[in-house]
Amino acid sequence: MVVYEPDETLAHCLDPRSKLAFQFGFAFTALAHTTPSALVALTALTAVVLVSARVALGRTLYAYRIPIVVLAVGPLLAALTLGAPWVEPAAAVDPAFASYRVLLILLVSAAYVRSTPVRDSRAAIQRTVPGRAGRLLATGVALVFRFLPVITADLRTIREAMAARLGDERSALERAGTIGLLGLSRAFERADRLSLALQARCFSWNPTLPHLAFTRLDAPVLALAVVLVASAAV
């Protein structure tokens, strides 16, 4: 699993908004180009990004093993034919290039995840999305981070309780229904307590945001993001 890790890399020093802009620019241009020369350039850029965030490549590829398998199945299916010669490797080349660019997009986003703490992402969202929608979105993101371990523990408790009562020998429908019903009931109970707590703590539309500022380091990253978005249209 790729998660945030405190460090002092170049990527850790950048403003989250410029890192987000770069990621979208990279994804747009990667989705627009699948030629070998474009893939070589994108691979080189990905390598720079991974080094700048000190991403452990082996561990990250292992974390992405299931998407990689699903991405590999597409080209394999494209190579199969319903008749002689049954397998046509040439038909898999373009899908394989297309799959590879998706892996590059995933690796670039891993660099963001490793180098950006939640509160920076939250502040970036709130400063980028205008008005009350931005306020709710940013607070909501922070709450999802906060409650994810709690809700995960709730689900684990439900599954363990089911297993202790031989619930895991029941039909799949019954198990899914029980997990869904109990999971939703507990989630609603937590949500109602949270809403009370938010009101008790004066949840407001105009909170004090953490400090966020572009530095000189962000200028080339932002410029590159603009170039990448523009190159997607070429």
Partner: peptide, 13 residues
């Protein structure tokens, strides 16, 4: 809003 946030977390869990 609280329900929406918690159900987004449930979706993630």
């Amino acid at each position: 809003f609280a329900r929406a946030a918690i159900l987004a977390a449930l979706m993630g869990a």
